[in-house]
Nucleic acid binder design. Sequence first.
DNA 1: TTGTATGCGTTATCAT
DNA 2: ATGATAACGCATACAA
Lengths: 342, 342
Amino acid sequence: MATLKDVARLAGVSARTVSNVVNDQPYVAEATRARVVAALAALDYQPNQVAKSLRTGRIGLLGFVVPDLSQSHFARLASDIVEAATARGFTVAVDQTHGDLERERRLIQLGPRGAMFDGAIFHPEALRAEDIEHRESQFPLVLIGERVAGDRLDHVYIDDRAAAYEATRRLIDDGHRRIAAIGLRRAAYARTAHLREEGMRQALDEAGDQVQQGRHQYVERYEVSDGYEAMANLVESAERPDAVICFADMLAIGALHRLHELRVAVPEDMAVVGFDDITEASFSYPPLSTIAADHAEIATTAVNALIERITNPGAPIREYVVSHRLVIRQSTRTDSTPEVRN
Amino acid sequence: MATLKDVARLAGVSARTVSNVVNDQPYVAEATRARVVAALAALDYQPNQVAKSLRTGRIGLLGFVVPDLSQSHFARLASDIVEAATARGFTVAVDQTHGDLERERRLIQLGPRGAMFDGAIFHPEALRAEDIEHRESQFPLVLIGERVAGDRLDHVYIDDRAAAYEATRRLIDDGHRRIAAIGLRRAAYARTAHLREEGMRQALDEAGDQVQQGRHQYVERYEVSDGYEAMANLVESAERPDAVICFADMLAIGALHRLHELRVAVPEDMAVVGFDDITEASFSYPPLSTIAADHAEIATTAVNALIERITNPGAPIREYVVSHRLVIRQSTRTDSTPEVRN
DNA sequence: TTGTATGCGTTATCAT
DNA sequence: ATGATAACGCATACAA
């Protein structure tokens, strides 16, 4: 691999001049520039990014850290983040925590992999507010998804309370009279779930006596089997709800599974709403109504926030609220006709 | 950020000795080691990976390049590759080509992002065999998925011919008498699809006159809408098949959609088999029978092959064949009862 | 067992 | 407008 020096020697100039040409600096005479360009081509010069990084202190790499990249929600986010980062000249490296608390704690301090990155976007799962409070590192970090509270780090998320409120309102307007949640978590740090529950309660309160709250279901994880179990409980319970909001589409898909087995009519006898609008939501039976965050907006917002933080470490900490919408499919009442989704 | 020199000064030794301690070299007296360790801790020393890389020529970064990370199949592969690479001490950076030929061509030459990586695992989409034949670069590269022929690069894939053969055999044994394919491509470079078609033909030939071949459907892309269209054609055609093998689960899901709309009974009047076993396949209606490659095996095989190639660039080019199996769900005939999948 | 010195390939500072 | 040269932080050949 040819280096700057090789090119300089061939062109009969100094390395400095070659560098100027490569980086489009001014102050290069036309004649010399031409000679250098020729030499560059002749040797098929490719700048060594590592050397450049050592010198400049920038490596052009952002970390994206999630519990599990194979989950649709994270995969789609990753895809959008790669696009957004590429547009700004950065490459994205991915890491998975599998929700391991120790790993997430270490990450908060060092950044991923001993900080070979300029910064990272992090979707925590097990992390607590206190972990962030105790953070000493200056490594540039932007949090997305789960809210860990604290005002020490930039955050990007949707208005979870409003989203849950809207979904509940819709179910009430559709005529449902007992509405339950699947997806609360006992853990004290699960703020996102609590905000959603608040939004539901607000809508229920506004509706007054005519609408009841179902018995909310707590879960450990957000997997299909958890939703399946939770729905099994609900269906057997004395005061069976006629509508459920699941705090993740995977929970909703498990719930639909159980309902299908029990021949409970969806949405007539039980309406189901999810969260995230993952691709599986379009292909479940029946297709799932769900809260869709604008994932592209999350990605660009997070990437821009991170680059801003890297460039300007002293700027005040910010919260970014990204838009969402309620997507109505056949798991809730609808007048529109089903369409094929691409 | 403290450097080796800072630590050396504090410990009253040379940078050389600190380096020895950090890298667990022998020949360090216990007493000095203790002093150095203390200094290391006091300054919270973190080695600068970039400087290390410049010196050693290794950066510990592997590229993983796919058309689109948001597609389940690629997301799952990415997840497995991150795990496998982490286990071997490497970090994974992701890049997306969106099937753009120029981008894939450039990649074959330089590696992703001007070769800030030690090597890359690449799932091509538009690339032709000739592009690889003309390759001059020595950048370590391992190909997975689509077969681009040529013996210039290491490849990892399943035995597509055998997989298609097995699926076809199963359909014949289930009593189907006219079997079609959805997913052939006109492009000359689509070798994978052709191998699958060969496998199907072999099974059909063996079955003799009792089984016919349906009219194979060509598609441009492997998306839901393509499968939907293709199935629409098949159902209306004069010699309508009673079973279909789709060369991607997304095609199969689109096909199932159309069948559901037309109230064609699956699998009784039309059996459907897919390829890939993406998560959506479990949640379609009915759940999809499909060919599942061992994705974890693909990942570890590809990572190991790549690291081997990086370490030993002169080794002979290899092909790695990974195992697969036919997963039977409700879109084909079955005697077993449906189960919830986690 | 440890220190000195050099170079990895760039960019940036200072001259000229 | 361009050349010489010093960093960037680390690992290592060579000395001691």
